[in-house]
Amino acid sequence: MPSEKSKHTFERWVVTILLIIGGLIVSLPFIWMISSSFKPESEILQMPPTLFAENPTLDNYISLFTNMNFGIYLKNTLIIVALSFVGLFFNAMAGYGFAKYNFKGKDKIFYLVLATMMIPGQVTMIPVYLLLNEMGLINTMLGIVLPGLAAAFSIFLFRMFMATIPTDLIEAARLDGAGEFYIFFRLIMPISKPIFAVQGILTFIAAWNSFLWPLIIANDESLYTLSVGLSLLKGQYANNFALQMAGAAFMVIPIIIVFSLFQKYIVEGFTTSGLK
């Protein structure tokens, strides 16, 4: 069947070409961002624009740290990332509690947890601000991190995974005299590595990108995150596009690196989180 085969090759070419064109369009903003971030200020406003910088320079990146306080923003963002891993740990604990224990009101409490997923952020935004205000946590790192520490969805996924761990294993450890927390740290957590990997990467991305809470809670620049700093930069240097692109690239490139290293886990994570 030579005609059938050539038809198949032809189709394959069409699909590949369509994907390449689409892929170029989709990645165009990234390419433009990175190439523009190396252009000196004079070159970026040049018409017609150059595809690659003629006189590539790192000045824009240096300027992020000298003219803007990107060093501080980076430090704050990393603190938020670290603290959100504490939240991940809380979610894992809760997931384990729901998966492997029977206690009074378990189902009702779990439905309550799931119900919080339906509440849109805009509704809780103002009351949470008022609550944090009463607690004196406005303009503190704790105030920025605390509201987002627990996530119903993450608890749900941890529960699903941990429910598959054989109860016999836990019973055996109990007979050997291991305490409940010892079992969780030394037995459950090592077994649950795959779900920790997926959730850990998603937690990192979410914390790295966090914007709205830092914006609302942080009043002074010393608590700004990279996202908030970048939006400030856009306002302050509205016409310095090279600097803006450098700021954007500085935020995006670490994510691209994390993504290419852990592509499989991230895609898996979104698939499982998407389909449930």
Binding site: F30, L226, L230, A248, M251, V252
Partner: peptide, 13 residues
Amino acid sequence: MPAITNIIAVAVV
């Protein structure tokens, strides 16, 4: 890729 990039960076670009 666009799905996981920071929305602020995206808006700036």
